[in-house]
Design a protein around this nucleic acid. Sequence first.
DNA 1: CTCGTCGTGGATAACGTTTTACAACATCCG
DNA 2: CGGATGTTGTAAAACGTTATCCACGACGAG
Lengths: 349, 349
Amino acid sequence: MDGPSAARPHKRVTITDVARHAGVSTAAVSKVMRNAYGVSEAMREKVRAAIADLGYRPHAAARGMRGRTYTIGVLLDNVRNAFFADILDGIRDELRHTDYTVLIGAAGFDPEEQARTIRSLVDRQMDGLILIAPGTPRAEVLATAASTPTVVIGHHDASDAYDAVVDADDLGAGLVVDHLVALGHRDIALVSAPGSRANKWKRTPEAVLSEGYLRAMEGHGLAPLARVHHTAYSDDGGFKAGMTLLTADRPPTAVMTGADVAALGVYRAAHELGLRVPADLSLVGYNNTALAALAPVQLTSVDQAGHTMGSAAARMLVERVESRRDRAMQTTMTPRLVVRATTGAPRGR
Amino acid sequence: MDGPSAARPHKRVTITDVARHAGVSTAAVSKVMRNAYGVSEAMREKVRAAIADLGYRPHAAARGMRGRTYTIGVLLDNVRNAFFADILDGIRDELRHTDYTVLIGAAGFDPEEQARTIRSLVDRQMDGLILIAPGTPRAEVLATAASTPTVVIGHHDASDAYDAVVDADDLGAGLVVDHLVALGHRDIALVSAPGSRANKWKRTPEAVLSEGYLRAMEGHGLAPLARVHHTAYSDDGGFKAGMTLLTADRPPTAVMTGADVAALGVYRAAHELGLRVPADLSLVGYNNTALAALAPVQLTSVDQAGHTMGSAAARMLVERVESRRDRAMQTTMTPRLVVRATTGAPRGR
DNA sequence: CTCGTCGTGGATAACGTTTTACAACATCCG
DNA sequence: CGGATGTTGTAAAACGTTATCCACGACGAG
């Protein structure tokens, strides 16, 4: 009898136990675990049996003291963004049948909080990091990447310190503008995210998107009509942007946004102002998340293949962790327009 | 010159470096870090200064070898469920100003995969675990809880091995039925999740919800009209359920679902069958996620206060980790009905 | 025969922390 | 002043792995 919680934590099986049970050294067991060079088939068999007998599972913290932890850390600002969920699925599927485990740090939007989370991941000896559109200063990411293999998703700023996976957001913007112009629109507004606050990322997804939008408008001779409204990518942000744009002197006949959820906010604003979609207003989202396909919405959007981006990132990262590659590389995905029910010819045509 | 990646990984600052820099023992530094007993104010000051000077950050893996890792692991089946995002936010907010970091393992729905993820978290020496509606066999959760403090969210099965946070789903179901009956409905169907496959959880959220629904129907003398349709909580699952129910001989005039996303699937089915909501069909969701409030939907739903559930879980877990409490406890939240635009009087009234 | 060489397995020193035990010293009380 | 009682700091032993040697025997070439 020793107190109420007598349920003894049942001591862990260690490598020493396995070694003793198999009648070999711990070094041998370790070698088998990592399938390192210098073990005979007989030895391998013997050790495997002992491991199975005892149900041995290596202690990750102890591993982290010397070698790998077999853990990949993912930094995310926002769990609510369905696009990120696609990326996560891609990462998970790629890593499913390997020894690696994926752990997610959800940091929120605050750059300081994100930096803290990145440090946490590094302190916990992650073998590699996948940072999804980090808002931390670029310098900090570079410093992290110097000590831990890192893949950055989203930002177009290239570097030889980290690998990168991006979507050709400028092409995406072009697809949308072309589509709308073909329908007869001329007055097309873009709702994008607020610019980075001096954190040294020059080519964020938003920036590249805006760039592509402006270039496309220019290409159609519509440069004077171009206007970009900045707001948070959220339902509420979209709503406010919509209110501002649609109550302006000369409201646009079409609005494209950098995120589906923001497009739904604009939709709500239009609804409230008595405008019908797409009769009075054409609306285009971005990312083609599940939201866009949803029941009464049927939002025209741009598909970014989040799943593919995630698996590409995971593959690239593992290559680096296992040092099968020592040069930085960058993967660019091509976006695709998915036309649904929220775009049509403008009324006054 | 030593190869292309000459950017030396810049050796970590260790506790030894701090001790040397402050002219004290490593033990003293350790005590200050954990603010343990037996350090003078002067010592504390000296060490603090050294830590700041060197920018020391403790190595979590090394910590994990003896004491805590200051990491809380969260098991999640599905990142897409917005309700879980609320819970996560609650956990994060509760832990924000502590030393703990939250790491999320996203496992998917497969029980085996979930079990693997739980093991991964344990192997990585998490100080505590929060399991959100785990699909793994109950026995496995009990075994885990025996060695690591654990909070289970969702399942109503109580135990003295783990703490639990649940919503009174039976009351929630009652609220919905009462609301619909008050509007004049009698033929009310429930769309719930498929039952657990012999994993020994008897009182899953779905089960308790169904129970509450049946009891409420009975209370109104509508037991003969009660019917429960089981399907996956997804847009597609909801769509199929809706199709089945609404094309039946005697279709219900109102449908309540166990998740908002499924309600939207039913909405889509109704739409496709030419039924208008709420004129021809009243529809109620569950969880009051952001989806429910969305633009053109305005779904009546039941609010579960996910944020509060998350912070309660985190608070309870930390109490256990720091062994300020040694008895299991269970927190039950009261749900609240949020009436929006998808419920109204039945037509044939 | 002698040398290397190769293939295999083991001893053992890290890795960076926490924690236990104890030494040194100060303080208090009778 | 002697002993009991605190207080503050340190030395050193874990913790469970990995990786670097080294030893040993077998074998093939000269």
